[in-house]
Nucleic acid binder design. Structure first.
Lengths: 258, 258
DNA sequence: CCCGCTATGTGTGTTTGCGTACAGACGCGC
DNA sequence: GCGCGTCTGTACGCAAACACACATAGCGGG
């Protein structure tokens, strides 16, 4: 019998040394992450760290006027709750579930303790934070200089990389608030991509038809983030025992362009 | 006799426990940081960490087309070279001196060693990184949603907070590349601020005349960053011996608005 | 003191994305 | 299988910022 869910579906958890993992395992709680659910409120205390397995969570920054901007996305390659070990227990950004699925959560106190042991877990978490920072930088520059259509392409590709299928369940409204643009802007950009035969759209479901074409439409930002994520997280050693339930290798695929 | 320069002018160095500081001190090298000088090239190896004292350094992200976006600014409240202890020895962003002055540099290897001791230095560096991340998030959102004039106001205030005087030496061209906009955009925005009597401009020199007015012109982003920086770095304990040469207290002033 | 470099001011036309408004269309639940 | 709520497509006018082009002015070096 195969378990449907396993902490090892998350790359960070799967890369923990056996001793560390076994110490944490009893405290890992499987939680369903519902579409649109808010994991962190801006300014609130962080009670848990989340390790997504099949879900994707978006780190959003919301300004006074209610407008938002996505800072970074987190899938099974990462975790949420960086601030727990960075100090200061709160984040200024909110975390919203972008693709429904599951994840494991760990009481914040335990994550902090584990981090402070200073072992491999610490190294991995810091390395991951660095990858996250890279993503944030690229997003910031992309926001500034690239068109909505390019940004949409980038976003679709990054999201797709975190999913097993080539279809994503997602309304244009949600995408718009992730990219920090109007819903109509997404309608138009998505329309263009559809007319170009790259994607197909149907009320809340987007299928990517021609991935290479989409990559050509996207700005360089996609390739850069992909490459950096690969570089920083590539040398991770997975535990032996993860083999059975392990996801089909680091799920982020190779970028097509050099 | 008073020394003109001292590592204690940098808040992070000034907050190190005596034992830690004395271990590092012999390796701290005072370097002049020239206007426009590039400390880090994107993708290059990080040889040194920099602790600005009187200089201000801008972390810039430059995209393929040559356009840029400022990620964050670093003055004597912080340091450059985060990636050294986060893992992966390189940064995707470049670091450019925005206000000439001085700083101390430390061989990267030593910073890493010190970080890995896991003491107060580690806690401080992580805490500072968290503050930096906050700044990056706010900048990203600000890029997306606020006008050039608001962004310019924010930027002037943040820069001013890191300087002893109310004048900054800075061409519109440099500001433009920091904010990732056209030079003409800055000319226009600065013209408006000048006509409003908030600043005065003269070929490479900007004086802030009415700080409160400028704060009113700026978006919320300024106040948010200020507050968060204060919160995260406020509980720092300075060493006794820093008293003589110490800068006039945490130089970041209190935000005017609540 | 003058020259030349560089910084700054200004103008025109164009593009992108925003705000608003509304019509149709899909799909879920009853 | 019907209805309603939500999602999607489209259209208009507008504002912000862009690209490009050029005129002027300050400052430092010779």
């Amino acid at each position: 019998m195969t378990t449907l869910h396993s902490p090892n579906q998350n790359h960070l958890l799967a890369a923990l040394p056996t001793a560390d993992f076994e110490r944490l395992a009893p405290h890992l709680e499987l939680v369903p992450l519902l579409l649109g659910e808010t994991l962190y409120e801006p300014g609130g205390q962080l009670r848990h760290a989340y390790f997504p397995t099949t879900a994707i969570v978006s780190m959003l920054y919301i300004i006074e006027s209610g407008l938002s901007a996505e800072i970074a996305g987190v899938g099974n390659e990462g975790m949420l709750g960086i601030a727990l070990f960075m100090g200061g227990d709160t984040t200024p950004s909110s975390a919203v579930v972008q693709t429904a699925g599951h994840g494991y959560r760990l009481p914040g106190k335990l994550l902090k303790e584990e981090f402070n042991r200073g072992g491999l877990m610490q190294r991995m978490l810091l390395r991951y934070t660095q990858a996250l920072v890279t993503q944030m930088c690229q997003t910031a520059a992309c926001n500034r200089h690239h068109s909505i259509e390019q940004q949409l392409s980038r976003w679709l590709l990054l999201t797709l990389d975190r999913l097993p299928s080539n279809e994503l369940v997602m309304t244009q409204d949600l995408i718009a608030s992730a990219l920090g643009v109007r819903r109509e802007g997404i309608t138009e950009a998505a329309g263009n991509l559809q007319r170009a035969g790259l994607i197909s759209y149907r009320r809340g479901h987007i299928s990517v038809l021609k991935r290479p074409g989409l990559e050509a439409h996207a700005c360089e930002c996609y390739a850069v983030v992909r490459k950096e994520l690969g570089r920083l997280l590539s040398d991770v050693q997975y535990r032996q025992d993860t083999a059975p339930t392990r996801v089909p290798a680091p799920q982020l695929r190779q970028a097509a362009r050099p």
